[in-house]
Structure formats: structure tokens, C-alpha cells
Amino acid sequence: MFSFLTSMLSSLFGKKKNVSLGLYGAPNAGKTTLANKICMDWVGEPLGTVSEIPHETRVVQKKEKVEMKYDGRKLSMNLLDMPGISTKVDYKEFTKHGIKKDEAQIRAKEATKGIIEAIKWLENVDAALVVMDSTEDPYTQVNITILGNLEARKIPVILVANKTDLAKSNKKSIEEAFPQYKVVPISAKDGDNIDHLYKEIFNRVN
């Protein structure tokens, strides 16, 4: 009887066994670095390749059944590292990083497809971490559009102010730009404050 009740209540409040958690943001915000950190902490292996070249992640990378534990609670999720969303892709940007023209053109085409895929996923994630480079101006149309679409679908969102290890980091600018959201400052590279992020994921998602 008790299990029937808990199961009924659980379905009423929409709790799923596996939550799809999407990592969104502009290119080079540190999404894959964060996805790798989460996967290393909870699965013991990384998810993707990190690079300084924009649009390194050009397909949605998934890690299924990432089991998180916090304060005696458990959360099972499918982690989705999205390609960085942008309104422009110029193959010439890749050639500046030493990539040959032919390869750069292919890379640009793949990047556009990856962005479309990431945008389509906006309708299908259960929760999202919107990752922002805290050394850059956060009030961009890409961030506004990502948040607007998540908000329209009432998808829980945590803003991640990444790269706090850098001197120019300014998490306040993110808080001022988007005061209605919870902002968690972290360094995905060094793991600084990552436990705080895990706590917030449990609070907002579980």
C-alpha cells in the first residue's frame, strides 16, 4: 500500500528515474570540461574532448545513468553535453587555429548541424545547467534565447558561472544580468566549488 502511494505521488509530481540533464551555453564556456568533471566524479571516466578551438563538441555527447549521491539521497541522470550554441559559424575562424581550409569547411558544417541538434534538444531535457564563461559579458542573445526557451517550458535551470580560476572572472555580472536565476560559481577545470553545484542539482532537479 505504501509503495503504491509513493509511486502514485512520484508520478503525480513528475519525478523520473533517469533525469535528462542538458549542459547548455555558448562555445568555449566550459561545458565539456564540466561534463568531464561530473563524469569523472561519478562514473570514473571522462565524456568528451576539450579544446580551445571553438565548436570542438559538434554532436550531443551523452553519458547515461550517471548516479549522483548527496546527503543520503540518490539521483540517476542522463548527462547531455550539448554543442555550443551560436548565431554564426565562419570556417575562417578555424583556419586561424592552424586547421586547413578543407577541414575547416567540414568542421564548420558539422558545427552548424551540432547547433541545430542542441536547439532541438531544448524541448527534451528535464533540467539544464546553462554554463557561462564568467570572464565574458553574459548578457548575450544566445544566453537570453537559451534561457527564454527553457523558461517557456518551465524546465529547471541552474546558471553556472564557470572559470572562476581566472583573474578576470566576475560572477556578479551573471547575477546582475539574470537576477531571477540561481548562479553557482565554479571552476570546472580545478573542481572549485563543484560540491555546491551538486547540492544545487539535487535541490533543483531531484
Binding site: Y91, I116, I119, Q141, G148, N149, A152
Partner: peptide, 26 residues
């Protein structure tokens, strides 16, 4: 609205080639 912005982003990506590198919007 967010839906229109999303559609605009998506269609822009479909149209990108060597000459048209995308849009700026604010």
C-alpha cells in the same frame, strides 16, 4: 519570442555557407 528566436537560430544554421556566416542579433 523565444520560439521565434529558436527558429531563427536553427534556420540560420541551415543557410550558413562560405559566404553567409550567420547573424548577429540583440
Amino acid at each position: 519570442d523565444p520560439e521565434q528566436e529558436k527558429e531563427l537560430f536553427k534556420r540560420t544554421m541551415e543557410l550558413i555557407d562560405d559566404d553567409f556566416t550567420g547573424i548577429e542579433i540583440s
